[in-house]
């Protein structure tokens, strides 16, 4: 199994398209950092426009490395599924397209093993992608913008909130958030892998994955009670942004944040379980479908 995984990772590492994802992340992060370095004030003015008459804030301190990473992740984590799909959706379909799938299947490896190895490789790719994001979006931002307390602007139900987390209480939240994001993106990897079983080139499954993510995300963001109650809990995309839960700090009765706390850990834990459940079901389905599939490519 380890031998197969090494082979799989070797193949991924030799493909030019693997590095597209890393380059894309770097480019997006760098553009963000440049834009905020040049004109972060406008962004702050925008988010704070309704209270700008009541409060004064040192905006240059508010736009710090921690805040930047949050802003970047907020945007980037919507696009990263595409990058994960780029590799994961190629898992089986790419081999079918190249004609190597029939050779793989005629080797003394079970199809179950092959799916598990492909899934493991896609997961490792996802982890590397997130590590790269951590390096660029978090550590590079800290280098460029420095560290300070972090402001979280959030809409909770009917009301908007501004939460402040002190700078010594942030790093562990990012580790947890990146961990959570890994699980969330692994669902995408599993989904792409599943779809790639049915196709003979990777374009179809990439587009299908992206479409599913976009459609579900749109539905997840429609605020209609009937959808909120009956549809959203069943969409995995509702849980993709759960990493933010690690930045929702609990407050005491006076509204003062409690250091080291989470507002709703049970909700995050539940989301994690739901995502892991998705992964298990999708990988199981992939194995079941792939084992019954006639390889005609």
């Amino acid at each position: 199994m380890w031998n197969l995984l090494q082979i799989e990772l070797f193949k991924i590492s030799k493909r030019p398209r693997t590095y597209i994802a890393f380059a894309a992340i770097f480019a997006i992060v760098a553009i963000f950092q440049f834009a905020f370095k040049a004109d972060g004030q406008s962004y702050m003015d925008l988010v704070l426009q309704s209270v700008k008459d009541s409060f004064e804030l040192d905006k240059s301190k508010a736009i710090n490395g921690y805040f930047m990473c949050y802003i970047i992740l907020n945007t980037l984590l919507i696009q990263v599924p595409i990058l994960v799909a780029l590799i994961a959706a190629d898992s089986i379909s790419g081999e079918a397209n190249m004609g190597t799938l029939r050779l793989l299947i005629s080797k003394p490896i079970s199809r179950t093993q092959l799916i598990l190895v492909k899934f493991a490789a896609a997961t490792i790719f996802t982890i590397f992608l997130l590590l790269w994001m951590a390096i660029t979006a978090l550590f590079m931002s800290l280098l460029v913008f420095g560290a300070d307390d972090m402001l979280i602007f959030r809409v909770k139900g009917e009301e908007s909130q501004i939460m402040q987390i002190t700078k010594d209480d942030i790093m562990w939240r990012y580790f947890a958030a990146f961990g959570y994001a890994t699980v969330a993106l692994t669902v995408i990897a599993a989904l792409s892998l599943f779809l790639s079983i049915f196709a003979e080139n990777s374009i179809g499954p990439i587009i299908a994955t992206v479409c599913i993510v976009i459609v579900c995300t749109i539905i997840s963001n429609i605020s209609v009670p009937i959808i909120d109650k009956n549809v959203k809990p069943f969409l995995f995309t509702s849980y993709l942004v759960g990493w933010k839960g690690f930045f929702y700090i609990a407050t005491n009765a006076e509204g003062v944040p409690i250091k080291g706390s989470l507002e709703n850990w049970p909700a995050i834990r539940k989301s994690l379980f739901i995502l892991i459940g998705h992964i298990l079901v999708i990988v199981w389905a992939s194995i079941a479908v792939f084992n019954r599939k006639d390889i005609l490519s």
Binding site: S54, N74, V155
Partner: peptide, 26 residues
């Protein structure tokens, strides 16, 4: 003690994690 306008985050700035808990209406 002072008066302040209610805080309203401009629409579309964030996709928030809805943990299903009801927020109490003010």
């Amino acid at each position: 003690t002072f008066n302040t306008k209610d805080y309203k985050l401009p629409k579309g700035v964030t996709f928030d994690f809805d943990d299903g808990s009801e927020s109490k209406k003010t």
